[in-house]
Amino acid sequence: MSKTDGRSSRWNEHRRIRREELVGAALDALRTAGPDFSVDDVARAAGVSKTVIYRYFGDKDELIDAVLERISTEVLLPRLLGELALERADDRAQLHAVIAAFVQLIEEEPALYRFAYAQAGRSGRADLVAATENQVAQALGTLMTERLAAAGRPTGAAMTWAYGVVGMVQLTAHWWSGTRAVSAAELTDQLTDLAHGGLATLLPPLPG
């Protein structure tokens, strides 16, 4: 490798690391200042000037997209997909664990949750909400498909059921985040009862 190539590689790695640090500062600013945080808030959190921020991000929209990506890959998906991947004694326990994880996330990271949903559906913006819902629904649908196939049952409805469950949980949890009409534990139990009550009539029983 030439000296020029070596310097370029080091600069690219430095730039990547610096961007990651600034995204971390943006998350700190988001938690402190709320969903409408400014670039000034990020600069203060990072201990740099706004000029430095714009050296690594073309504009605030680019910074917001990077923040959404971080929330998706390091906060939302690992928790939800991780719960889906764990084997449990029965379907109700599986649904309860995933729903509980989502509700707990709303409680633990209210600013991140409000920010993510404030960006949903905006033109030209990476839609974190839709992307997360799709990945969780696809994972749930895959589990349902495997269950049905193992029982020799048609699998065509698995994805419909999976997206129905995810949509139900997401919309209800979003309503709850603003009303807190019941406790988090009650919400989780109520959603689990509704989801499991419907699926229990459709899915074959677990073996054993």
Score class of each variant (00 low, 15 high):
V136H: 02
K60A: 03
V136N: 05
P78A: 04
I53P: 05
S177K: 08
R55G: 10
T192R: 00
E69P: 00
E87P: 00
E186A: 13
T192W: 02
G58K: 11
D28P: 02
Y54R: 05
Q104Y: 02
P205N: 10
Y113A: 09
F115K: 04
Q135Y: 06
A126S: 15
T179P: 01
D59F: 10
L203W: 03
T51N: 13
G197D: 12
Y54K: 11
G34Y: 00
G178R: 09
G24A: 06
R70H: 04
T73V: 10
S183W: 13
Q135F: 04
E69I: 08
R16I: 07
W175I: 15
K3Q: 12
T142R: 13
T188S: 11
E186M: 13
D5K: 11
S2E: 04
G34P: 01
P204D: 10
G198S: 06
A130C: 08
I64A: 06
A173E: 01
A89D: 15
E107A: 09
E109P: 00
R180F: 03
L171D: 14
I106M: 13
V166E: 08
L143S: 09
T4H: 12
P205T: 09
Y113R: 01
A131L: 10
A100W: 08
A66Y: 01
E107N: 05
V169H: 03
E20R: 14
L95T: 01
E87I: 02
P154D: 04
F102A: 08
R153P: 02
V52K: 12
M168P: 00
R153H: 07
M159Q: 14
E69S: 07
H174F: 08
I71S: 02
A33T: 12
Q104E: 14
A89E: 15
Q138P: 04
G197K: 03
A150W: 07
A185R: 15
D40P: 00
L112N: 06
A118E: 14
A25Q: 11
Q135T: 03
L202T: 05
R10H: 09
V42C: 07
R114D: 13
I106A: 10
T160W: 14
R114Q: 11
Q135M: 08
L76C: 03
L199A: 07
G141Y: 00
R10S: 10
E186H: 13
R7D: 09
L77P: 03
W176A: 05
G156C: 01
A184L: 07
W175F: 14
V48H: 03
T73D: 09
R44K: 12
A126K: 13
G121M: 07
E87F: 04
Q138F: 08
L194E: 14
Q190A: 15
G34F: 00
A151P: 01
T132W: 04
V39C: 13
Q104K: 11
E108P: 00
E186C: 09
T4W: 03
A195D: 00
L77G: 10
M1P: 04
A120G: 05
A149E: 15
T188R: 01
V136T: 11
L199Q: 05
S72H: 15
G124D: 13
A118L: 14
T179M: 09
V39T: 11
A126P: 02
